[in-house]
Design a binder for these strands. Structure first.
Lengths: 125, 125
DNA sequence: ACACGTGTTCTATGAGTTGTAGAACAGACC
DNA sequence: GGTCTGTTCTACAACTCATAGAACACGTGT
């Protein structure tokens, strides 16, 4: 688990932690059952407050990607989440619209999607 | 220009206005030279403050999608913006990772991308 | 010239978010 | 018992979001 966050970024730290974990899960670097560092430990490693890490973990838990117990700590545990697809597709539409509006071609955009997905696939294989 | 925003959404109003305009440009409903309503007029139509509309328009202008002058008001004007592609691809990676992490298959995700892009293409044709 | 609509800029306020901070409690492990 | 951990509470400074009012500059139409 190499989790690099940019403390100077305009993106909130807890959001960056969340995104990096999600990307690690998608890439297969983190599979069901794999443990994450404790909130206090990761906070020390990143040089931030443990409440910030807690917020990121709690968000992942609410999304059904993490199981957190006093016993096992935080472990990856993917459970089905209703209503995710619809909300996700709305965000996809906005993101793709931005690319098209800025002049990228449909084929070019689709190529980026394919390349990004293939990167996840390759790491997992 | 039918611009529907959800005042009860957790997404900021100015962001929704921004996103709807971007989507309209991508779909070809708004082309270069097309005017947008004045900030005060759109604010009245949506039942919000004109400063909020101003913020959305200013964001679109900074992104190189809008030209705003005292003379012509706000008109769609797409100009090249350096550094957009890199930042956009990072957001694409995060969004696609979320889908994969939640259990959607690569082929399924790519299908959603293709469908969304085709929707833009069809409206424009 | 005049009024009007518009973009632009300033201050200000209240509510909410972000990140940090300290403290306390409960369960698990050695 | 001591330590590490998750969990929960309060608190604070800085920032964002949305609203609000005021003022100024510019263009248009009468």
């Amino acid at each position: 688990m190499i989790l690099d966050v940019d403390l100077t970024s305009e993106v909130p730290i807890y959001q960056q932690i969340h995104d990096r974990v999600v990307e690690a899960i998608a890439a297969g670097e983190l599979a069901d059952g794999d443990p994450l560092p404790s909130t206090r430990q990761l906070a020390v490693d990143l040089g931030i407050n443990f409440h910030t890490v807690n917020k990121a973990y709690d968000q992942l838990r609410r999304e059904g990607l993490l199981l957190i117990t006093r016993k096992s700590g935080a472990v990856v545990q993917r459970v089905s989440t209703a209503g995710f697809a619809a909300e996700w597709q709305a965000r996809l539409k906005t993101l793709l619209a931005e690319a098209i509006a800025h002049g990228l071609g449909e084929r070019e955009v689709l190529g980026h999607c394919e390349t990004t997905l293939r990167a996840f696939e390759e790491v997992r294989a």
